[in-house]
Design a protein around this nucleic acid. Sequence first.
DNA 1: TAGCTTCTTGAACCGTGGTTCAATCCGCCG
DNA 2: CGGCGGATTGAACCACGGTTCAAGAAGCTA
Lengths: 234, 234
Amino acid sequence: MVQSAVPESSAERFDARRREILLSASRAYRERGFHATGMREIAQAAGMTAGNLYHYFAGKEALLAFCQEESARRLNELAAWVEEQPLRADARLHALIVGHVLVLNEGLPGSLAHLEVESLDGEGRRRVVTLRDRYEEALRGILRAGMDAGVLRRADLKLTALAILGAINWTVKWFRPGGKSSAREVGEHFAEQLVRGLLAPEVELMRPAGEVPIFGSAAHRENNATPTDSSRTR
Amino acid sequence: MVQSAVPESSAERFDARRREILLSASRAYRERGFHATGMREIAQAAGMTAGNLYHYFAGKEALLAFCQEESARRLNELAAWVEEQPLRADARLHALIVGHVLVLNEGLPGSLAHLEVESLDGEGRRRVVTLRDRYEEALRGILRAGMDAGVLRRADLKLTALAILGAINWTVKWFRPGGKSSAREVGEHFAEQLVRGLLAPEVELMRPAGEVPIFGSAAHRENNATPTDSSRTR
DNA sequence: TAGCTTCTTGAACCGTGGTTCAATCCGCCG
DNA sequence: CGGCGGATTGAACCACGGTTCAAGAAGCTA
């Protein structure tokens, strides 16, 4: 599965290790929540010592910031992808919902989204909030377009978006891989239910043609250079 | 507003003080989250010393348990009330959604619901989880009845319920009293959107007749005796 | 192999925050 | 007025957990 066979250069190993940590951390956060999870715990899950974590991250908060930034970034990639698909608004919305559920629950690393932004401060918080706002704006954009086109019922954009986001984000509280439904099934179900709730009368529901890809799971190398500035510790 | 004019007996003052604390605590939890809020902080908000808190509650966790139990109990009262209304399933669902939003965001005391159950242990946790499960079962019951009657589209009960619960519970993350919309408006909007998403084809949406009452805000005296056993500390 | 840099460790430091407790205050009852 | 019990305080206790650091191991380059 994991193509960690040939760790290339030193800088690349550093990044890879960072991602491993990220993975352990986000798993732990998911179980017990951010505040309840200790550094030693995360370290152990990543197969290292607590002190060593500080070689890769400036501190607890930086680690959280990194996690959140990661998934926020993926959501924005998803939104960009959805926007360039040649689909009607309702199908677009459908795809976005499925993709969002997948990012949160399938894309292993960083999967706790913008939950817990409250625990962030300063620069890190600003960055995450910006990304989150951009994504939510994209969602509202789809809704607006759908309403303008008469495909979706007219309603308050903010509230409509928040209902959708709530349903999806809440999944991280209960979804467990290996459970009764796969993340994709959950996504499809939610998309169906939520999109139907917005359809204008007389309009027949339209779904996207192919499968929505999973953003962040793999096939993600040449990102824009140095995503985080607070990377290297000293 | 608050009829705290004549504090009756000593035992009743004790209970009243407990509720005041509860109120401060739940407000604080809401702002910063459970783990991030200190006892001294809660105490100060309640106009007392940290040490004094322990006269009313056994500890931090007991306090949280009490909060959660309180709102879980209210949700169940709501569900019971909804069930005895002579309404069609979709209208019932509508009422339940509105009421749920109101309990979480308007019924001041204890308003953080079953979020953060993870932070509980032992007896307290068991009790909260039981109450939560009972409520969710009530919700699924309404959905099932609606599907059986052909009013609602047939779909997975668990997932359908979770989508609804997610949208609603998520409101505690963003709703602020005094904001653009009132809790009731949010509730109405959500009910509209969510119920529509489930309506069977050809069925015309039906709303409840009157206004859904707010459970827990006031008019709540003669509860069933001694709700919590872990009441009196020593 | 020497010598640099990067990783890694384990132990120690230290602030925060939950909790305890003895002492005091206050209201009520006889 | 005397005194009893609940209420309240403030300070101290103490463990947990984030963080630091000096020292050593492992890699890489020449």
